[in-house]
Amino acid sequence: MPLKGGGLERKSKASDQIPSSSLADIAFLLLIFFMVTTVFRTEADRPIEWPEAEATQQIDETRDNIMYIWVERNGDVWINDRLVPMENVSELVAPRWVESGRRLRISLRADAEVPYRFVDAVQREIQQAGAIYVVFATDLERRMMRERR
């Protein structure tokens, strides 16, 4: 059977338009992804300069079992948006430690420039409350930055 027009005029049957019928599905997929991953802020960040470390790792514990203690440059301690005197820190940590079934991780978010005595004092308070898992919150340091130092 001879081809029509010698096969030169045959048109492609594939559409040259991007299929848009799945657009809504893609939108819903993204919608559900963001709905599931959304965490509404429970407490505001304090203005601190984050220390940097190459060995930074993710805390493998659920958000409910992580407690944040902020230590500002002048030594002020903030927990749950409130300024807490140093000697009261253990009273706040102890109930959370018991509640979490001895799994509580404390993310110690101390300013890079704060004198170590404040960080040590917070550690003592944490120990007094019985908690033992502490994470010094850091930003991941890239090797390039280290070379420059």
Partner: peptide, 14 residues
């Protein structure tokens, strides 16, 4: 409104 949690640092056991 999504905030990806930034829970990372250097872990240590006291």
């Amino acid at each position: 409104t999504t905030v990806f949690p930034k829970d990372r640092g250097l872990p240590i056991v006291l």
